[in-house]
């Protein structure tokens, strides 16, 4: 029974990734690529949050700091002349380092104190970057001339597929089991011999690693932006909303959430003018009221 459900999940995941990968072959244009890129970006970022928030129950609102530092480092190393994959890995390791410096101490905080302690970290990072780097991060002309959105999208798709695969593996591993135990009852988990602190640290490292990857992709796709843009607090809040809307602590949930969040918002913005955000808010509330367990709850019923 469980094995069959697993195969079904894998099938759904593989088919949807391949499907997304095929779309640009049939519908041409920058816009389609841009939307699909955003879909991948949000999937990675949401899953990075999902690992910590969905599986382990630790609400981390500092994701913007880890996303931002990933973007900053990746861009810097890439522009310095190293190949992009090297820069991307370096970027996600810079997130890991930040997590060790700031994240691990905050793990001492419990429940919502952790949430808001990490929000504080994100705010500090944002204001510091605004003050220290007030300018615009331009892509140099040499890199701009061979700018190709198709390659950028497929890079993001590969990273997204790897992320989903990683989360799938975590979901079915002993690590995942320990994380869920900590989420459900920290004291009971500790009593059954789970080293809570150790698992929390591992979870945080994994989570920030993927956040850094997402940040690196942001730096890869966008031509020029103010240095502080990837540090904006929306990069903390958006993944939370996406994961909750889709279904926390699942592999498929954040995918559905990202699809809903990115595409629905876009459709509203294109077709409704100034009222688009208002209507989106109404629809958002209706979804939460009717599907309190997230969009994934439809299937479970």
């Amino acid at each position: 029974m469980k094995a069959r459900r697993d195969i079904k999940t894998i099938l759904i995941l593989v088919i949807s990734i391949v499907f997304v990968g095929l779309i640009p072959l049939f519908i041409k244009g920058e816009y389609v690529l841009n939307m699909l890129f955003l879909l991948c970006l949000y999937t990675i970022l949401s899953h990075s949050w999902n690992i910590m928030g969905g599986y382990c129950g630790q609400i981390n609102l500092g994701q913007a700091a880890f996303f931002g530092i990933g973007a900053l480092t990746t861009r810097y190393i890439w522009v310095a002349g190293y190949p992009f994959p090297v820069a991307l890995i370096a970027g996600s390791f810079s997130s890991l380092i930040l997590a060790c410096l700031i994240g691990i101490p905050t793990l001492r905080l419990r429940a919502h104190y952790f949430a808001i302690g990490t929000l504080g970290v994100a705010m500090i990072a944002l204001i510091t970057i605004q003050n220290a780097l007030p300018g615009v991060d331009f892509l140099p002309a040499s890199l701009m001339s061979d700018y190709n959105p198709t390659i950028r999208f497929y890079t993001a798709l590969i990273v997204a597929a790897l992320t989903i695969f990683a989360v799938y593996c975590i979901n079915n591993s002993r690590l995942g089991l320990a994380m869920k135990c900590i989420r459900d009852d920290e004291e009971a988990a500790s009593a059954t011999g789970i080293n809570v602190v150790r698992y929390k640290i591992i979870t945080l490292m994994l989570s920030t690693f993927f956040a850094g990857l997402a940040g690196g992709l942001f730096a890869y796709y966008y031509v020029s932006y103010y240095y502080y843009v990837p540090f904006e607090l929306m990069w903390s809040f958006d993944p939370v909303l996406i994961v909750f809307i889709g279904g926390a602590g699942t592999v498929v949930g954040p995918l559905i959430g990202a699809l809903c969040y990115v595409i629905l918002k876009e459709i509203f913005a294109i077709s409704m003018g100034q009222v688009n955000v208002l209507i989106f808010g109404v629809v958002f509330i209706l979804i939460v009221l009717f599907l309190p367990k997230g969009l994934i709850g439809i299937k479970k019923r």
Partner: peptide, 25 residues
């Protein structure tokens, strides 16, 4: 409790969007 916090957060986020945009309009 956990789900109360989560769902109230989501609903009030929607409300935040609605209110600030309603005022803008």
């Amino acid at each position: 409790e956990g789900q109360k916090t989560k769902n109230s957060l989501l609903i009030s986020f929607g409300l935040l969007l609605i209110l600030s945009n309603l005022v803008t309009i």
